[in-house]
């Protein structure tokens, strides 16, 4: 279990960020707080990226199980890319605007 987490933390963090920023939009819009969704989404994204970078740095230093760490680190790299891409729409567009 611990091994699974130490390998999969990257995509797990992306999944958490994705779920939070996506699901929260409907809830914020529904609650009439659409204008704060952008700040929320960006805060979640920065937090996810920050945690990811810290974890990668720790893993890089420790390298206790070289074989599997060498899966965890590149996986985290791909996940960081996905986190940044997922954050971009919030940076560029206003929330709660219907597609027309």
């Amino acid at each position: 279990m611990r091994l699974a987490v130490s390998t999969l933390y990257g995509p797990l963090l992306w999944a958490g960020q994705f779920l939070l920023v996506y699901a929260s939009e409907s809830l914020f819009c529904r609650a009439g707080a659409g204008e704060t969704h952008r700040a929320f989404a960006l805060a979640v994204s920065v937090a996810a990226a920050g945690v990811l970078v810290v974890l990668v740095a720790r893993q890089w230093r420790a390298l206790s199980q070289p074989a599997l760490d060498s899966v965890g680190v590149p996986l985290a790299g791909l996940s960081l890319l996905a986190i940044v891409w997922t954050a971009l729409p919030s940076l560029l567009m206003a929330s709660c605007t219907a597609a027309t």
Binding site: F18, E25, A82, P89, A94, S95, C96, T97, A99
Partner: peptide, 18 residues
Amino acid sequence: TTGIPMVSLGFFSAASMA
């Protein structure tokens, strides 16, 4: 094309590229 908010579409577009 189902009328989902723009930003949500952006999230899924980003993941599709990822």
